Amino acid sequence: MTDIDKLDDEGLALRLKETGDQRYFAELMRRHERKILKKCKSYVKQDEASEDLMQEVMIKLFLRIKDFRSEAKFSTWLFTIIHSTCIDYLRKHKKNVHSIITEKLSDEVAEIVDTEEEVTEAMSEKILEELLNHMTPEEKMLLLLKYKEKHQIKDIQLTLNLSESAVKMRLKRAKEKINKLYYKHRQ
C-alpha cells in the first residue's frame, strides 16, 4: 500500500493542489471515474455524451483544483462540477433542463413535504415542474445536494462558499415553497 492509497479524497485533492503531481489526480480519477460517468448519464441519458461529459468534468476538476477548500468534502465539490457541466451541456443542446431536474428531485419531494400522507408521483412531478420555474439554479442545486445527494449542511456551505445560516435559510425557503405548492395542488 503506497502513501497515495492511504490518503482520503480530501487529502489527495489537497496534495494535488499543493504539488500538481499527476499521481494524485490519477488516483482521484480511479476512485471517482465510474461515479462521474453514472451521474453524467443520469442527466443526459446517452452513453457517448456521458463519456464526453465525464472527460470534461475531469478536465475541469484538474483546472479548478486550486479552488478546492480542504475543509470541504471532495464529493460535494465534485458534485457541483458535475451538475454545472451537465446543466451547461443540456442548455447548449436545447434539452429541457427543468424536466431533468424534476426527474432527479421527484423521489425526494415526499421527504421535503411536511405531511403524514403519501405524496403521489404525479403530485411530485406537478409540484416540482411548477416550483422549478420559480427557483434559481442555486436553489435547485441546494435541493439536489441536500435531498438527492444527501450531503451535510457543512459540506454544502464550504463548497458553495456560503455561511451555514445562508444554506439553512435557503433550504428552508425552498422547502416552504414546495410545501405551499403541495397544499395548493392538494385542494
Rank of each mutant, 00 (worst) to 15 (best):
T2Y: 04
D3S: 09
I4Q: 03
K6H: 12
L7V: 07
D9E: 14
E10I: 11
E10D: 13
L12K: 04
R15M: 15
L16F: 11
K17V: 12
K17P: 06
K17A: 14
E18D: 11
E18F: 13
G20C: 09
G20D: 04
A26I: 10
R30M: 08
R31F: 10
R31Y: 10
R31C: 10
R31T: 12
R34F: 15
I36T: 02
K38V: 11
K38G: 12
K38E: 14
K39I: 03
K39C: 00
C40K: 02
K41R: 15
S42P: 06
S42C: 11
Y43D: 00
V44T: 07
Q46W: 14
D47P: 11
E48K: 12
E48A: 14
A49K: 05
E51R: 13
M54R: 06
M54E: 03
Q55C: 10
Q55N: 13
Q55P: 05
V57M: 05
V57S: 00
I59S: 07
I59V: 13
K60S: 03
K60F: 04
L63Y: 05
R69W: 10
S70A: 12
S70C: 13
S70R: 14
E71Q: 13
E71T: 12
K73C: 05
F74R: 00
T76Y: 01
T76M: 05
W77G: 00
T80W: 03
T80D: 01
T80C: 00
I81P: 02
I82C: 00
C86K: 04
I87H: 04
Y89D: 03
L90K: 00
L90T: 02
R91D: 15
R91S: 15
H93P: 10
K94H: 07
K94F: 06
K94R: 07
K95H: 08
K95Q: 08
V97Q: 01
S99C: 10
I100Y: 06
T102D: 15
E103D: 12
K104W: 06
K104Y: 08
K104A: 10
L105H: 01
E108A: 09
E108Q: 15
E108G: 08
V113A: 04
D114K: 10
D114A: 13
T115Q: 05
T115H: 05
T120L: 14
M123Y: 06
M123A: 09
E125D: 12
I127C: 01
I127F: 02
E130V: 12
L131N: 03
L131R: 02
L131F: 11
L132Y: 05
N133I: 15
P137V: 00
P137F: 02
E138R: 05
E138C: 08
E138K: 08
L142E: 02
L144E: 02
E149G: 07
H151D: 03
H151P: 01
Q152C: 13
Q152V: 08
I153G: 03
D155F: 03
D155E: 15
Q157W: 01
T159S: 10
N161T: 11
N161R: 12
N161G: 13
S163Y: 06
E164W: 12
S165F: 07
A166I: 05
A166K: 01
K168N: 13
M169G: 09
R170A: 06
R170L: 08
L171N: 03
K177C: 08
N179K: 06
K180C: 12
L181I: 07
Y183R: 09
Y183S: 08
K184V: 06
H185E: 14
H185C: 09
Q187S: 13
Q187E: 12
Q187C: 15
